[in-house]
């Protein structure tokens, strides 16, 4: 059985040509934010039209690759593109950093997956992004603004050099608080300090949405808990299929079992069992280390 590519199908209105197909998923733009963070813009008109804030995709870069979930960082229905921002930490993301250049293809990109965010004009809302979470919180900030809400952006980076997309956030946020570990840009402190700053200034904040590493989302949820502000977090546990079939992404939310891929990925941050989530994220740490080591060795061998 041959795997042929059909460049047409996921273009709107085109029908599948004969045979066994997998659509060609071409990378149309790439931008490197730092040594480890890179942006890929991928051509997929049908998905660009279907995507909503809060959703994710599952990407497979090659035939022997693994299926990795990535939150959609942006989508443009007019251009027909989906934007992904990726941090090269594991073997697959390092390999993609090397191989995913403009004009190359991904083996597959399936989605948009997960329940979209519930966006409405809720009054004042804080959109928090830390590290890699800065990118996926952007579509939410934009959507809240377009829905008429007052949007306060809080984004955190280690230092000035790692800042990206501050222009995009400025365009849609009524206020933007940039936090950096060393104070080289914005306020010195963590995103939780930014949240507190916003709460001080605006006692009538209705919602907080936080996306980032689990430890950061946990801290955000704890920051808002005393104020009783509704806090939504976006979880990214280990998953295989992304369609509710493997149960690998099960998370404990208020003593109930939820599958992040189909019930989420967004949940009430005050209900999520973060210690459990963090324990489960370490499930394959041994294998991940082994894969990165093998990858590093093979890269050395190529030199």
């Amino acid at each position: 059985m041959s795997l042929r590519k059909n460049p047409q199908f996921h273009a709107l209105g085109a029908s599948a040509s004969d045979g066994y197909e997998a659509s060609a998923i071409t990378i149309t733009r790439r931008e490197d934010f730092s040594d480890v963070t890179y942006l890929l813009e991928v051509h997929h008109p049908m998905m660009a039209k279907a995507a909503r804030p809060g959703q994710f995709v599952i990407v497979m870069s090659h035939e022997n690759g693994e299926r990795i979930p990535l939150t959609i960082a942006d989508f443009d229905a007019e251009k027909g593109t989906i934007t992904l921002v990726i941090q090269a930490i594991g073997k697959t993301t390092k390999e993609m950093q090397r191989d995913c250049q403009v004009g190359t293809e991904l083996l597959s990109m399936t989605g948009p997956m997960g329940e979209p965010s519930h966006i409405a004009n809720v009054g004042k809302v804080v959109c928090v992004g830390g590290g890699l979470g800065v990118a996926p919180v952007f579509p939410q900030a934009r959507a809240y603004k377009q829905a008429g809400a007052y949007v306060i952006g809080v984004v955190g980076f280690r230092n000035k050099d790692l800042v990206f997309w501050d222009d995009k956030f400025n365009q849609y946020c009524d206020e933007l608080i940039i936090c950096s570990d060393d104070g080289s840009v914005g306020i010195q402190g963590r995103v939780t300090d930014g949240i507190l700053l916003a709460i001080e200034k605006h006692p009538d904040i209705q919602e907080v949405l936080a996306i980032g590493p689990p430890i950061m989302m946990k801290a955000c949820a704890e920051t808002t808990r005393p104020y009783g502000i509704k806090t939504t977090v976006s979880l990214n546990p280990v998953m295989v299929d992304g369609t509710g079939m493997c149960g690998g992404c099960r998370v404990k939310v208020g003593e109930q079992m939820k599958f992040a891929c189909v019930d989420g990925p967004e949940f009430d941050g005050h209900q999520v069992d973060f210690p459990d989530l963090m324990n489960r994220l370490g499930r394959f740490s041994k294998e991940e280390k082994q894969a990165v080591e093998k990858w590093t060795d093979s890269c050395k061998a190529r030199l």
Partner: peptide, 30 residues
């Protein structure tokens, strides 16, 4: 049920049959 080492048969079989996890690290799925 949330401990590491607990999984569904679906997950095991999908990793093994679809993703060829038995061939890790030549295939990327553990």
């Amino acid at each position: 049920e949330y401990l590491n080492g607990v999984l569904s048969a679906n997950e095991l079989l999908t990793r093994c049959n679809l993703m060829q996890a038995g061939d890790f690290p030549n295939h990327d799925t553990p």
